[in-house]
C-alpha cells in the first residue's frame, strides 16, 4: 500500500514537472518580439513573389493555422498542450518544411539515447568499481594513483575534453574519424562496427569526465561506510574482505550513487549536446543546434520538450527502481 502511494506520488510529480516545463517552453518564445508568421511572410516577399493584400492575409491565416498560432494566447496554449500530450505532434519543421518535427526527432533520438546510455553505464559501473576498491584500501598505491587520475579528470568541461580527444585522436593521430559518417545497410555488421567506430570518441569524452566524478563520490561513501558499526561487526564475525565488500559495503555505498545518477542525468544530457555538435553526431543535440541557427521554432519546441520529457522520465524510472533496492523506503 505504501509502495503504491510512493509510486502514485512520484507519477504525479512527474506529470507536474512535464506540464510545467511545457508551459515555460510555450510562453517564453511568445514573450519575445519575433513573430514567425511575419518572418515567413517577409521571407516569401524577399524572394520577389508578388502578392496582393488578400493573398497575404490568406497566407498569413494559413501559416498561423499550420504553426498553431491561431486565436488568443490561451486558446493556443490549450491546443498546444492537447496536441503534445494526445498526439505528440509538434507540427512541421520550418527549416526543413514540410518534414514533421516528430520524424526528425525520431531519427535523432536513438543516437542520443544510445550514446548517453552506453557512456553513462560504462562510466557508472567503472567509476563505482574503482571508487569502491580505492575507498576500501585508501593507502594502496593503485588506489592513490586512481584517485589522482579521477581528481584531475572530473573538473574538465565536456567540450574541452571532446576537443582535446578529437585533436589528439582524429587530427594528430588519425585513428578515429573527425566527423560522423555512418555506412552500411540496416542491421548489417558493417553498420554496427561503423556506429561503434564513430561513437567511440564522443562516448569517451563523456565517460572520462563522469568516471572521475563517480570515483570520487563512491570513494567518499566507502570511506565513511568502513567506519560504520555494521561493517566492523561483520569483520568481527570473521567474514572475509570480499564478502564484507559485496554484502555490506557495496549495497550501502551504491544507494546514494543511484540518487546521484538521477541528478546527474540532466547534466550529462547537456554535456552530450555539446559533444554531438563537436563531433557532428546526428543526435538531438545537433538537431537543437540546427533549430537555433535556422530559427526553426517548431523544431526547437519539439527537441527541447523531448529533452525535458526524456530527462524527467529517466529520473522517474530511477526513483521507481530505488524502493526495490532500499527496504527502508519499501516498508515505510
Amino acid at each position: 500500500m505504501n509502495l503504491l502511494r510512493y509510486i502514485a506520488g512520484r507519477l504525479v510529480v512527474y506529470i507536474l514537472v512535464v506540464i510545467f516545463a511545457l508551459t515555460v517552453l510555450f510562453f517564453v518564445p511568445r514573450l519575445g518580439p519575433t513573430d514567425p508568421v511575419e518572418a515567413m511572410l517577409a521571407k516569401v516577399a524577399s524572394q520577389g513573389a508578388y502578392m496582393d493584400a488578400a493573398q497575404v492575409d490568406a497566407l498569413r491565416q494559413s501559416l498561423a493555422d499550420t504553426f498553431g498560432l491561431d486565436g488568443s494566447l490561451w486558446d493556443q496554449y490549450g491546443a498546444f498542450i492537447k496536441r503534445i500530450v494526445l498526439t505528440a505532434d509538434f507540427g512541421p519543421s520550418l527549416s526543413m518544411y514540410p518534414t514533421p518535427v516528430m520524424e526528425l526527432i525520431r531519427n535523432a533520438l536513438p543516437w542520443t539515447f544510445g550514446l548517453l546510455l552506453t557512456s553513462t553505464l560504462i562510466a557508472w559501473v567503472l567509476g563505482n568499481f574503482v571508487g569502491l576498491l580505492s575507498g576500501w584500501k585508501p593507502n594502496s598505491t593503485s588506489s592513490r594513483v586512481m584517485e589522482g587520475i579521477a581528481i584531475c579528470l572530473y573538473p574538465i568541461p565536456y567540450y574541452i575534453l571532446a576537443l582535446l580527444l578529437s585533436i589528439l585522436f582524429s587530427y594528430i593521430w588519425k585513428i578515429f574519424p573527425l566527423t560522423t559518417t555512418i555506412r552500411g545497410a540496416p542491421w548489417s555488421w558493417e553498420l554496427i562496427t561503423s556506429v561503434v567506430w564513430n561513437s567511440f570518441l564522443p562516448a569517451m569524452s563523456i565517460v572520462i569526465v563522469v568516471f572521475g566524478w563517480w570515483v570520487i563520490s563512491v570513494k567518499a561513501q566507502t570511506t565513511a561506510l568502513k567506519e560504520e558499526e555494521f561493517v566492523r561487526y561483520a569483520r568481527l564475525k570473521g567474514l572475509g574482505d570480499a564478502r564484507i565488500l559485496s554484502r555490506y559495503v557495496l549495497p550501502n555505498a551504491i544507494l546514494p550513487q543511484i540518487t546521484f545518477l538521477a541528478l546527474q542525468i540532466g547534466l550529462m544530457f547537456n554535456g552530450s549536446l555539446i559533444t554531438e555538435i563537436l563531433f557532428d553526431y546526428p543526435g538531438l543535440g545537433l538537431l537543437i543546434y540546427t533549430a537555433v541557427l535556422q530559427g526553426d521554432f517548431n523544431l526547437l519546441m519539439g527537441t527541447i520538450s523531448l529533452s525535458v520529457i526524456a530527462v524527467a522520465t529517466a529520473t522517474m524510472i530511477i526513483d521507481l527502481i530505488y524502493p526495490l533496492l532500499d527496504p527502508r523506503i519499501r516498508h515505510r
Binding site: 560504520e228 558499526e229 555494521f230 561487526y233 561483520a234 568481527l236 564475525k237 570473521g238 567474514l239 564478502r243 554484502r247 555490506y248 549495497p251 550501502n252 544507494l255 533496492l325 532500499d326 527496504p327 527502508r328
Partner: peptide, 27 residues
Amino acid sequence: DQLSYIPQGSMSVLNPLMKIEAQVVDG
C-alpha cells in the same frame, strides 16, 4: 567459531539492507 561477541546495542550494528535471517546465517 570458538568465540563470538555481542556488541553494544545501537541502531547501526545490523546491516540495514539485509534481512535478519541472512544476518544470523552470515558468518
